[in-house]
Structure formats: structure tokens, C-alpha cells
Amino acid sequence: MAPFDLDFQPGERTARRAVRVSGTGPGPEDQERETVAINAEYVGREYPAPEPYEVTRGKIREFAEAINDHNPVYVDPEAAKAAGHPDVIAPPTFPVILGMAGSAIAVADPDLGVDFSRVVHGDQSFHYSRPLRAGDVLTAVTRITDVKTLGGNGMLTLETVAEADGEHVVTAGMMLVVRGE
């Protein structure tokens, strides 16, 4: 389970280039372990979504069913109206669809050199101005907010800000761990 131990020791440092360090891997062969380093100069780089994202009743229903959440405000417009919403609302983690799309664009950026197969989700947050709802047309921009190296792993922090009609709806924060070799 060693690759998943996210309780990193303090002593983080910002990496500017890949370095090789010996003896940090706990493997039986005690091989050299390659530190994953992401260039910190990319902090602040932005990745706008190529097109607006339309939130639909059908997609909200599909997502709610996939998480086995049968709350009627996600599928029944009348129940949603009774709860004070103009249409069905989306579950709190629904905006991950926007965050995933944004992070996929960032992770695919060849400048970053991230190996997607070694990416593990470290943490996730959502800050809402209001719930997403059917009918929303969201524009999203994903930004690299932090880059660091901890315990041989690269850590890439991204933030996706989604707006509708120029008004903030949700900010999704995501920290991705790129596991060392």
C-alpha cells in the first residue's frame, strides 16, 4: 500500500527539474526512484474550456443514478421547485465533470510532462455560490494554482472556476498526486 501513503513527511520543496534520488523507494530491490517533478513556472497557466457546458436534466439524472442518490430534487422538477429551485439541481459533486475536463486538458499539456497513468487524486474541494441546475450554461477556466514535490511524488493543484451569465457558480479545487516511479 506504500504508493498510497499520502501522509507525506514535511520538508517539501519546489522542483524546477527532474532529479534522481537514491534509496527513497521502499521496494525490495532498493532501486533508484525517479522523483516526479513538474515545472513550477507553470503555476498560473490557464486552460479555458473549449466550449460552454450545458447542464441538462438528463445528465443530472444520470449522475444522480450513478452515485445511487435518489433525492427527488435531482430528478423531479416539481420537488425541486417545492424546495425553492427553478429546476432540478445537481448533486454537490456534479461539477467534477467540469473539473475533470479541465484537469484532463492541463494534464495533457506536453509542457507539464505528466504521466496520466501515475496520477492519483489527492484532495478535492467545491465552493458554491449556488447549486448547479438544469438549464445552466457554464463557462469554465482551469488554472494551475500550485506545483510541488513531496516524497518523490509530484503534486499538481488545479482550480476550475465555473460561471453562468457572468456570475460565479462554483469553484472546484483538485490536487493530483503524480506518483514517483
Binding site: M1, P92, H121, H127
Partner: peptide, 16 residues
């Protein structure tokens, strides 16, 4: 009882 009232929600994934 109100799915629309969540203002902040964050998690740290500590084990798979």
C-alpha cells in the same frame, strides 16, 4: 434535508 444548501465541501483522500 436540503441538497441545495451546501456552500463548501472538501475531502482529502487518505487511502484507496
Amino acid at each position: 434535508g436540503d441538497a441545495g444548501c451546501v456552500v463548501d465541501y472538501s475531502v482529502r483522500f487518505s487511502a484507496p
